[in-house]
């Protein structure tokens, strides 16, 4: 039984070196300026320089728009998928695109949205004329939502599939019509799925920087883009780490807000 400790060593090393140390270092680094001196200046600058606050606000706003539009499209989809006969197979088809490399899917839109791309061809065809689509806020939101949709459909679909049919029967039995049943029974009972989807999309929407770079051009700057910019372009790691710490805090806030509020299980009597 003494071997236990030995085989834990590599795993504990991993925790120490790749979990604790990097997280500690990003916090540590956020207290250093570009010349390597200890300072609270990064946080001060973040809080007082309007640019950073505005960027954070915009990033959150974009993430909200992306998440909510994804939800709006996904909920009905999940609802309808659940009524289909071979619903597991259809769900597989929803999930399949998530297996295609994210960058390839994003790259496809460079072609689709370009000045002479298919979408503009279509717009000209229906008489709306061509537009600058690439490098706009709308294109960024569209592509991000496109990427995220399966991650919203899946948890909602699962919570709908778990819903016992007797719940719906009971609601009808007690006099509720279809809409009342949806609002008072189906929606509240599938909230865990909605929350899971919200978590799974909102945080990446704050941090995915490749979509902003490739589709949003330099117009859209999210927390993720700002971190990438500070680390890899301007080499201001201190400020990048500060934004990283903000992103980690945002992650905890989202997880806290979408936690399950209902006390389940409760007291045992």
């Amino acid at each position: 039984m003494h071997k236990k400790a030995t085989y834990l060593i590599p795993y504990l090393l991993w925790i120490g070196l790749f979990v604790i140390a990097p997280m500690a270092l990003i916090v540590y680094q956020s207290f250093f300026n570009i010349t390597g001196h200890f300072t609270l200046g990064n946080y001060e600058q973040y809080l007082t320089n309007g640019v950073y606050l505005k960027m954070t606000f915009n990033s959150i706003l974009y993430a909200l728009i992306i998440t909510l539009s994804t939800l709006l499209i996904s909920y009905p989809t999940a609802l309808l998928l659940n009524r289909l006969k071979n619903k597991q197979l259809w769900l597989l088809l929803i999930i399949l695109p998530t297996w295609i490399n994210l960058l390839l899917k994003t790259y496809a839109f460079i072609g689709l949205f370009s000045q002479n791309g298919s979408v503009n061809d279509f717009l000209r065809f229906v008489g709306l004329g061509s537009h600058q689509i690439l490098f706009t806020d709308a294109s960024f939101i569209f592509v991000a939502a496109y990427i995220e949709i399966p991650f919203m459909i899946l948890p909602i679909f699962n919570s709908l599939a778990e819903l016992k049919p007797s719940m719906i029967n009971a609601s009808r039995d007690l006099g509720a019509n279809s809409w009342q049943t949806f609002r008072r029974v189906i929606l509240p009972l599938t909230m865990p799925g909605v929350k899971a989807g919200f978590q799974a999309i909102f945080i990446p929407s704050l941090s995915l920087f490749m979509i902003t770079r490739l589709i949003g051009g330099n117009r859209v700057i999210t927390l993720g883009t700002a971190i990438e910019e500070h680390f890899l372009v301007t080499q201001n790691w201190g400020m990048g780490s500060t934004i990283g710490v903000i992103l980690i805090l945002a992650m905890f806030v989202v997880m806290y807000l979408t936690r399950d509020r209902k006390v389940k299980g409760g007291r045992i009597r």
Binding site: P22, I26, S207, G224, E228, I248, M251
Partner: peptide
């Protein structure tokens, strides 16, 4: 953790 955080740290 978001990928950017993992990458940066």
């Amino acid at each position: 953790s978001p990928d950017v955080i993992i990458g940066a740290s």
